[in-house]
Design a protein around this nucleic acid. Sequence first.
DNA 1: AGGTGTGAACACTTTCACAGCA
DNA 2: TGCTGTGAAAGTGTTCACACCT
Lengths: 236, 236
Amino acid sequence: MHRGWAIFVNLFTISAISRRPASSQSMRKISDPAARRLSLYLRALEALEASGEATASSRQLAEMCGITGAQLRKDLSLFGSFGKRGLGYPVSELIPRIRGILGLSRSWRVALVGAGRIGSALVDYPDFRDRGFHIVAVLDADPRKVGRPLGSLTVRDVSELEAVAREEGLDMVILAVPAAESQALADRAVAAGIRGILNFAPTRLRVPPHVTLNEVNMGVELEALAFVLAEDGSPE
Amino acid sequence: MHRGWAIFVNLFTISAISRRPASSQSMRKISDPAARRLSLYLRALEALEASGEATASSRQLAEMCGITGAQLRKDLSLFGSFGKRGLGYPVSELIPRIRGILGLSRSWRVALVGAGRIGSALVDYPDFRDRGFHIVAVLDADPRKVGRPLGSLTVRDVSELEAVAREEGLDMVILAVPAAESQALADRAVAAGIRGILNFAPTRLRVPPHVTLNEVNMGVELEALAFVLAEDGSPE
DNA sequence: AGGTGTGAACACTTTCACAGCA
DNA sequence: TGCTGTGAAAGTGTTCACACCT
């Protein structure tokens, strides 16, 4: 395999928007984009482990993630010294370290609110399950959906959100509902003690500071794409 | 309009470097996050128009989007002076201006690659259709899916990607395929002259600098959420 | 050599604060 | 008075460059 002077392309990437207010309250030593990159490093490391690599240099790893070696080293150095000078990072040691940092060494109990098209896609999303995110309940407001099976679960009425939060000990909630309903549901989730929300509805939600909110706005992503294409692409 | 660039797609091709940060070729006057915010402003303005508001102050608008008034004013000022001092911004005038800036005054022809769960959710996503993004073809590699209807379209074989790009005059491609296949498909799309890609596969893709790539990585979002919760949540 | 860890330089974004106009 | 538009200041995030270890 050819490596060497391979260089990285300038991507234009950015995953999603997240509200990046003054963190929760305690000062974070690591930035939000850096946390996202950790997640990328983990994927790259797992790929390397699968192909039997014992060590990986920052450059090699960084190239797989589309960033620079310096950035990767800096990101990791915020948590400790994992690498061996002159050698690189030990793949199989680093994996559990990063998993620990990301909070993936425990499992997370999450409820999916919204059993529509997007919800249906998420309920079985392998990436979630494989990393310790367990969807323990699916809720929907549509009486025709309630009682129906979705994946290995049965759709419950959305009015049960509070009960589910209590009984199942929910850690987070994924909102995949229409924009109009999302804020009210977020409010209810917060009131029920949920401290993490992943929102797929195309609205900007407001939550109190102790709650962490990440948003995936697919419409915005497509429009941001159109913006760049319209800008330097064809006139008109 | 369609000049067929000869882009060689080799396994480990190195694409140009150009340390230049982002920006397809010339200097962008607006940052990527700012472009995303424009998309948010548009949504807020449309909501205000629907409720009959004639003008909106930067603060009001900004609050709807979860940012500060100063930032909104600065963002808009990069494109001109749309507001009236002492009054605010005229809602119904500003809407078409932002649509124009974002490239939404024209329509965009997009192909959806991948008719799995996520693809199925996207094909009818109202936010796309309502803003001039027309999904003109759905492709999949699974012979069992080819020929089946999806939304108002019939799934075509992924080998037809190049033909579709040519015949339909595609502007962009949405990738909703497994991680393992995504890079190869991105390469093919690029070779077929596509200049915009929205990637839902959980891998970091590499594309040449003239192509704009946006990525939606739901796994990363969930892990970023876990990271914050693990950090200031329970010790350990 | 080869490659990490890191302070310092740099670039980019956001916020401040206020002049200036309706 | 109320609110925009914008230079200047503050704040963040990224890259450089090199000491230092193996």
